[in-house]
Amino acid sequence: MSFQTVLRPRSVVPWPARLAARLAVAAAKPLTHLSPERVRRLLALLARGARPAGFAQVATARDAVTTVSLVCAGREGCLQRSLATALLCRARGVWPTWCVGIRTAPPFAAHAWVQADGRMVGEGVPEGYFRVLFSVPPHDTREATDGRRGRG
C-alpha cells in the first residue's frame, strides 16, 4: 500500500474561507472529467465580468484550497487545484489567468496552474519551466462595453 505525503505547514485559514474553499474544491472535481475544450469554454464564460486578480488574492485563494484538500495539495492535483483556485477567486469577484501547458524539459508532463500579475502562483519553479498551450485570462466585459460607448 502506498500513500502520498504532503509536507507543508498548515495555514491559518478562517472558517468562512475554509467553507468557501471546500465548496470550490467540490465544484472543481466534476470539471476535471470534462474535455479540455469544454473546461476552457466554461471558464471563459465564468471569467466574463470579473476584475483581474492580484497576486496576493490568488495566493490567498490557492492557499485556502490546498489547506482544505489533500488532493489539491498533492503533486498530482494540479488540475483540480487550479480549477478550485480560479472558482474561489471568481466567487470573490476577481479572476486569475488559468493556464494549461507542458513542461519544457524532459520528461514530458502536462500541468495546470494559475497566474496573476504575469507570474505563476505557488508553483515554485523558474520562469519558462512550463509552456502555455492555452489559457483563460480575466475578461472584464464592463470595460469593453464602456469603451464601445465612448466611440459612438
Rank of each mutant, 00 (worst) to 15 (best):
V100H: 05
L45E: 14
L79D: 02
A112L: 07
V71P: 06
D117E: 15
G77D: 07
A116I: 01
A50V: 03
V136K: 01
R75Q: 12
C99P: 01
L133N: 04
R103W: 07
E143I: 11
A47K: 02
V121A: 02
A44W: 09
A44K: 14
S35A: 15
G74Q: 08
R81I: 11
R62Q: 14
Q57Y: 01
V58N: 00
A73P: 08
A56C: 02
V114Q: 01
A112Y: 01
R92C: 04
A109P: 03
S69H: 10
C78P: 04
Q57V: 03
A110N: 11
L43K: 05
A17S: 09
A20D: 05
L45A: 15
P106S: 14
P36R: 13
R81A: 13
L70W: 11
V132G: 04
E37N: 12
R62I: 00
G93F: 03
A91I: 03
Q115C: 12
A28I: 07
C78R: 04
D140P: 10
V71A: 14
V100R: 01
A64W: 01
W95R: 01
A47H: 03
R92L: 06
A47N: 04
R103P: 05
D117C: 09
P137F: 05
R41L: 13
R41H: 14
T85Q: 04
V114L: 07
V100Q: 02
L34H: 14
A17K: 06
T141L: 09
V94W: 00
L43D: 03
R62F: 00
R92N: 06
S135G: 07
A144Y: 06
T32L: 03
A28F: 04
L34D: 12
L45N: 14
A20N: 00
T32W: 02
P36G: 14
W98D: 00
P96D: 02
Y129K: 08
S82F: 00
H111E: 05
A105K: 11
G118P: 09
A112D: 03
T67A: 13
G77P: 08
R22N: 06
E37A: 15
D63G: 10
G93K: 03
T60E: 13
A47W: 00
P138I: 07
P52S: 04
D140A: 06
S69E: 08
T104D: 09
G74F: 02
L87V: 02
V68P: 00
D117I: 05
G54T: 04
A59C: 08
R75A: 12
G74T: 10
A50D: 02
C78L: 07
S135N: 07
A50M: 10
R92H: 09
L79I: 10
A61V: 04
V100I: 10
P96S: 03
V94T: 08
R38S: 14
R41I: 09
S82R: 00
H33M: 14
R40H: 13
M120R: 10
P137E: 09
R92E: 05
R38Q: 14
A56L: 07
R142G: 09
R48D: 08
E143Q: 11
V125Y: 11
R90C: 06
T67R: 08
V94D: 00
P138N: 05
V94N: 00
G118W: 08
R40N: 09
L46C: 11
E143N: 07
R62T: 01
A26M: 11
E123F: 08
G118Q: 13
R131H: 13
E127H: 14
